[in-house]
């Protein structure tokens, strides 16, 4: 039996197969999560089956198959983004097997050799598409993860201006080499933009400081110095200070207990001071006006 025969069989029993497949998908819970509308699923199912028939029946099988794979990729990508599980995504393809097998059995029931051949051919194509579907699904998820990583990296490294010529870099989270790179670039760029003399690196939010993190910090400090800005490190927590000493980590830079002290030191170094004014007696001096 040629593949064209399979194509004809499917085309002939199209309505029946579509109904069966639809049932299979609904029983499998394709719609239960509410992420996919019934009409949407119907369109996907119909498009896929039409492309499938073309792929097995036309002479230009290559272009048709390419279109079919493209269709599978699109459906899988959409499901990955909508948050479907891998099983739910793969079921879209694999649940077509049963209806197709039924249709083939009814058509070639008497001719067992042809039936086996037909089943094998259909299985091969569907399995291939299933794998392709999984691959696309996985790839889409990875893209999402990479994008989120980038967003996190950018979000978590703001450089804030505390005063004319004084910048603060509040670090939160673990410092790996990739983040250090982003932090360093942001800081150096801000130093140029603001014409800063002092940069305060606050590590209150850094959970652990091992030799590697210390090295990353030192690199950042050295790069800032090359640009002509001095660095102050602040917010080293007591436990971290102990670990650092035990590990033999030495940060040969000015360090202050907290951000306030560091700001004070930077202000003094730039010839400024903070003074209390007497008139602020009682009540909030801050007004929203």
């Amino acid at each position: 039996m040629a593949q064209a025969d399979i194509g004809q069989t499917i085309a002939k029993r199209r309505a029946e197969i579509l109904k069966d497949w639809g049932h299979q998908l609904r029983d499998g819970g394709a719609l239960s999560s509410g992420r996919l509308k019934e009409a949407e699923l119907d369109t996907q199912v119909r498009e896929f089956l039409d492309l499938f028939v073309q792929a097995v029946s036309t002479n230009e099988a290559d272009t048709a198959r390419k279109a079919l794979r493209q269709n599978v990729a699109e459906v899988s990508r959409a499901r990955a983004i909508q948050g479907f599980t891998p099983t739910e995504t793969a079921t879209f393809i694999f649940s077509l097997k049963q209806p197709l097998f039924d249709a083939l059995t009814q058509e070639f029931g008497k001719d067992s050799a042809a039936l086996i051949q037909g089943l094998l051919a259909v299985t091969e194509i569907l399995d291939g598409l299933g794998l392709h579907s999984m691959e696309t699904f996985q790839k889409s998820r990875e893209e999402v993860i990479i994008r989120q990583q980038k967003e996190i990296a950018e979000l978590s490294t703001p450089v804030v201006k505390l005063w004319d010529g004084i910048l603060a870099l509040p670090l939160i989270g673990t410092l790996d080499s990739e983040r250090t790179q982003v932090v360093m670039e942001n800081l150096l760029q801000s130093i140029v933009e603001h014409g800063a003399d002092y940069a305060i690196i606050d590590i209150t939010g850094v959970p652990t400081v091992d030799t590697l993190v210390a090295q990353h910090l030192l690199k950042t400090v050295a790069a800032a110095r090359l640009m002509g800005a001095d660095c102050i490190i602040s917010g080293i927590r007591p436990q971290i200070a102990q670990t650092m000493v035990h590990l033999g980590v030495e940060l040969n830079v000015v360090s202050k207990a907290n951000l306030a002290d560091a700001l004070g030191a930077a202000l003094r170094a730039t010839g400024r001071t903070v003074a209390t004014i007497k008139s602020a007696s009682g009540g909030s001096a801050l007004s929203k006006a």
């Binding site: 150096l188 690199k219 050295a222």
Partner: peptide, 15 residues
Amino acid sequence: MRPAVAITLVELGLT
């Protein structure tokens, strides 16, 4: 010194 140059020098170990 440009930021990129500063980073390069630090990575080269030249501070």
